[in-house]
Design a protein around this nucleic acid. Structure first.
Length: 255
DNA sequence: ATCGGTACCTGCACGC
DNA sequence: TGCGTGCAGGTACCGA
């Protein structure tokens, strides 16, 4: 998503319009629009699932897509268009049917982004192992905890655990180093492949150009309940871990 | 400090 | 056709 938003870097925002205040965090929409108006977008970076734009003259514009959020360059507004950013080069729309996404402007770098864990593609294995230590939670819940590592969501947690042969309900503290190594490698492989495939488009995700990803065709367990495991043929099962669906092969992923 | 559960929304598929 | 139920790429907040 951030890569496809790159054409906005260096561009001036002519105006901003907020149609749905529910997705706005931290303040008055008019003040926010005034703060953005006439300023250039100096930089655009992703921190886990958070997108942060640096605004000329100070300030940060943070966007989170939640489950169904979209950032679209050009295109028509619709029922779920909550914000419109008019740049000199064209329009950027924020759409989100479920309204779990959010937009926040802050003068300082946003604290909740600063408090996230490390990037899973940047963390080293020793750091990863030590972060696993002393945890009492189930491994799936830990992978979804953005203060552990940032950016792993439900799809990639399930896919990484499958590749590592770890049961989603396995207790974190009982995972030995050799198995942790497999998990570390699996996370890196899954994320790298998924990014190369342009992400997973289940029903909503498209990039800023409106293009779908195709990693969903490579999912081995996610939303494949009842289908045969690609490695052993055993039917994939679904359990809840921390109220989130978790898909796994009961034969390949033992506790 | 860390945990599990819940709330926040809309849309869709499914069974009756 | 319509209605109720369950489910969906996430995070924040609460009490324990």
């Amino acid at each position: 998503m951030v890569r496809t938003l790159a054409p906005l870097i260096g561009k001036r925002m002519v105006s901003a319009e907020f149609r749905n205040l529910r997705v706005l965090r931290g303040g008055d929409p008019d003040a926010m629009a005034a703060r953005l108006q006439g300023r250039r977008l100096l930089a655009l970076r992703r921190y886990g699932k958070f997108i942060v734009a640096t605004i000329e003259g100070g300030g940060y514009l943070m966007v989170h897509l939640g489950m169904t959020g979209r950032l679209l360059l050009g295109g028509a507004t619709g029922k779920h268009t909550h914000a419109i950013f008019n740049f000199e080069s064209g329009t950027l729309l924020f759409d989100d049917s479920r309204q779990f996404g959010c937009i926040e402007f802050s003068e300082e770098f946003p604290g909740r982004v600063a408090r996230l864990g490390p990037e899973p593609l940047e963390i080293g294995f020793p750091e990863f192992v030590s972060a696993l230590g002393g945890r009492k939670t189930r491994i799936k819940a830990l992978l979804l905890n953005q203060k552990f590592v940032r950016g792993i969501g439900n799809i990639y947690a399930d896919e990484a655990l499958f590749r590592a042969g770890i049961h989603p309900q396995a207790l974190t503290g009982r995972i030995r180093v050799a198995r942790a190594r497999k998990l570390y490698d699996a996370i890196q492989a899954v994320l790298t492949e998924a990014i190369a495939a342009g992400g997973s488009s289940i029903s909503d995700y498209v990039d800023a150009q409106g293009r779908k990803g195709f990693f969903q065709t490579s999912h081995r367990v996610y939303q494949r309940t009842g289908e045969a495991c690609v490695d052993c043929g055993t039917p994939i099962r679904r359990v809840l871990v921390g109220q989130r669906s978790s898909h796994f092969c009961p034969q390949c992923q033992k506790r």
